[in-house]
């Protein structure tokens, strides 16, 4: 069979041998094009990953050589080099601000998401507006949030530079992420579950709290964790709401708070080696926190979702 077939093919092509050559050359060029694109794709991966790996290496190396109990338990003492002892105030302040802003943003975001996914109808105009506004809010540059928070919370409400002003401002940044992920996660819950709940005589409240929220929980928690990891790394909204303090946080109102990103931002620019060391250590801690949260969110939650 086979030899015969090739023979007939050769016969039909015989009158135009140059055409065969042209097609073969054309095919080589067509394949070469993909080779070039694939090479460029690999190149772009290398070009982008090199700085990332360099960054990870630099801060991991510096951080691991600099980390010590003293640097974690003593506080910063101003920017003059000699007494830049440790990051305790910044670590405590960051934890306080993130904790409080989660306290504001998580209930608001999750409740809003529940409204959007469970109570609003398909063509609910108000719900459409909330979704739109939350998208807009997610696109507002963080320094603008900082300015608004400064004017409203620090000056107008008269709370001064404080943990409350800072965490409310950060909560505005976190809200759209939590709202969106809750909305999406709840809408992924199949309707058959809702129908089953109703058929068993459940109230809507029970259905949402006992079934839908539980099923959607991994998605919601992932959204919350990611929004926390974003706000851990924020500086701009805090500059004029938390200001900075060299002391451990002592009060919620009228008391500036230190935080890690501020240490990186200012101490990296100071001409003192000891200040720079603290900046390196703070950057290392920030990266560590962010990487850990991302790992837990992506790997841990994926496992939960399968069950």
């Amino acid at each position: 069979m086979m030899p015969e077939e090739t023979e007939t093919v050769q016969q039909t092509r015989a009158p135009f041998p140059w055409r065969d050559k042209r097609i073969a050359r054309n095919n080589r060029i067509r394949k070469l094009k993909w080779r070039i694109i694939a090479f460029l794709a690999v190149l772009s991966v290398i070009v982008v990953l090199y700085p990332l790996l360099d960054m990870l290496y630099l801060f991991a190396y510096k951080g691991l050589t600099l980390i010590s109990l003293a640097r974690l338990t003593q506080t910063t003492t101003g920017g003059t080099g000699v007494g830049n002892a440790g990051l305790a105030n910044a670590i405590a302040g960051s934890a306080l601000i993130i904790g409080m802003s989660s306290l504001f943003a998580v209930p608001l975001g999750v409740l809003s998401g529940i409204y959007l996914a469970e109570f609003a109808g398909e063509r609910d105009r108000y719900a459409g507006m909330v979704r739109f506004v939350s998208d807009v809010l997610a696109g507002v540059p963080s320094i603008i949030l900082g300015y608004a928070g400064f004017f409203v919370f620090v000056l107008y409400f008269g709370w001064g530079f404080s943990a409350v002003a800072a965490s409310l401002t950060l909560a505005i940044l976190m809200l759209p992420y939590i709202l969106r992920t809750t909305d999406v996660a709840l809408r992924k819950v199949p309707d058959s579950i809702r129908e089953g709940a109703y058929a068993l005589g459940s109230s809507k409240t029970d259905m949402i709290n006992r079934l839908n929220l539980r099923i959607a929980l991994p998605g919601i928690v992932t959204g919350i964790l990611l929004s926390i990891s974003i706000s851990v790394g924020e500086t701009a909204p805090l500059l004029y709401t938390a200001s900075f303090s060299n002391y451990l946080p002592s009060a919620l109102f009228h008391s500036p708070v230190g935080y890690l990103t501020y240490v990186v931002w200012t101490y990296s620019q100071l001409p003192f080696a000891q200040a720079n060391d603290l900046a390196y250590l703070a950057a290392f801690l920030l990266m560590l926190i962010v990487v850990l949260i991302n790992l837990v969110a992506r790997v841990g939650m994926r496992r939960f979702m399968k069950i």
Binding site: V45, M55, G233, R298
Partner: peptide, 24 residues
Amino acid sequence: VSFLVELLAGIPSVVYGFWGLVVL
């Protein structure tokens, strides 16, 4: 590589700036 790229998205912007200042 996906994981590394997503990691890049999570790095705080001030850390990018710091790396830019001392390396780039």
